[in-house]
């Protein structure tokens, strides 16, 4: 497998002007701006093989977008090595740019006042896509994303979900080998998110393109990627298969019990933390290792109609990852 993305000891520092609140402070900042150094990425290293679909997660301000911007050549790294497809992204070699695409959920490239098909035509010219390839790509993307009826409508009249799907078409017409997606489902309704997600998985399988996806929507990660990279405060916290992330951070399981008769709720406390009591439902959180024993005992000692053992909600797990921050390589 060819290594497509290589990042080694990447550091990115921003210098920002700070402004204190208040009128006089505002005037002072014009003459003597206070500069502050912010470390956005602190010694990040990872690599991605061809065809991989990697989820990049972290809270707001963790450095996800900064990394994608460096990978697509928009930001100049303070130090460290960055190589994609054998190119240094910052050089913005046209051969490189023809092989990548950056999709940002909060930014559009479609011309606002014109139908999307005009922007597609422009991209065809910019990326110098041969006519036949262009037609094939367009037909394929349009049917996958179900946007056939929207091509000739001025972009301003489209809904956010429709626009996002057309943005994807515009970004993929030139069949990029590497695709950076920054929050592609942000602001979309559940149905819109699902459509985009299904498309991304499908596209990755069909085209074999290497993809990095940032999101703080856990469903994106759960349903789309196998490998996750977690960063927090500019540091790499976890890099490995998704199930390993869950196993190493989800120490507890959630046991949901439906009682058939009233029982002494207090007695549940001996098994674990009682999370919720809403008769007939009782939810307790139990350490992973003892869950089998505990459920057997509960079945014996309580009038149980039904019992369910579930994983901790993903959000909780991720919260722990961000808080605890033990580095683990897989």
């Amino acid at each position: 497998m060819e290594r497509v993305i290589l990042i080694d000891k990447l550091v990115k520092e921003f210098v920002v002007n700070t402004k204190e609140p208040g009128f006089f402070a505002g005037i002072r900042s014009v003459f003597r701006p206070k500069k502050k150094r912010v470390l956005a990425l602190d010694n990040i290293s990872f690599s991605v093989d061809e065809g991989e679909l990697v989820g990049f997660i972290g809270p707001n301000g963790a450095g996800k977008t900064t990394t994608l911007k460096i990978l697509s050549g928009l930001l100049y790294p303070t130090s460290g090595l960055v190589q994609v497809l054998g190119f240094d992204p910052w050089e913005k070699n046209h051969k490189y740019l023809k092989n990548i695409s950056l999709v940002m959920g909060q930014k559009n490239q479609l011309w606002w006042d014109l139908p999307a098909v005009e922007t597609f035509e422009l991209n065809r010219a910019i990326y110098e896509i041969p006519n036949r390839d262009y037609k094939r790509s367009l037909d394929e993307l349009v049917s996958l994303l179900e946007v056939g009826g929207l091509l000739n409508v001025p972009v301003r009249r489209l809904s956010l979900g429709q626009r996002m799907r057309l943005e994807l078409v515009a970004s993929l017409l030139h069949r990029p080998r590497v695709l950076f997606l920054d929050e592609p489902t942000i602001g979309l309704d559940v149905l819109g998110q699902t459509k985009i997600r299904e498309f991304l998985v499908d596209y990755n399988r069909r085209s074999g393109a290497t993809m990095i996806l940032t999101s703080h929507n856990m469903d994106d990660i759960l349903n789309v990627v196998k490998r996750v990279i977690v960063i927090n405060k500019g540091r790499l916290v976890f890099d490995g298969p998704f199930h390993l992330l869950v196993e190493s951070f989800a120490r507890k399981k959630v046991v949901k019990i439906y009682l058939s008769d009233s029982a002494d709720i207090k007695k549940f406390e001996q098994y674990g933390k009682v999370v919720k009591v809403d008769f007939p439902e009782v939810v307790i959180s139990v350490p992973r290792e003892t869950v089998a024993l505990t459920s057997a005992e509960i079945l014996q000692n309580f009038p149980v109609a039904d019992i369910n053992i579930e994983e901790e909600p993903l959000e909780e797990v991720i919260k722990k990852v961000f808080k605890g921050g033990k580095v683990k390589d897989a």
Binding site: S72, G73, L74, K92, H94, K95, L97, K98, I100, S101, L102, M104, K107, Q109, N123, I126, Y127, E128
Partner: peptide
């Protein structure tokens, strides 16, 4: 507005 991004990432 950051729209410049659209141009910097294209062979243009």
């Amino acid at each position: 507005s950051g729209n410049l991004t659209n141009f910097l990432i294209k062979p243009l």
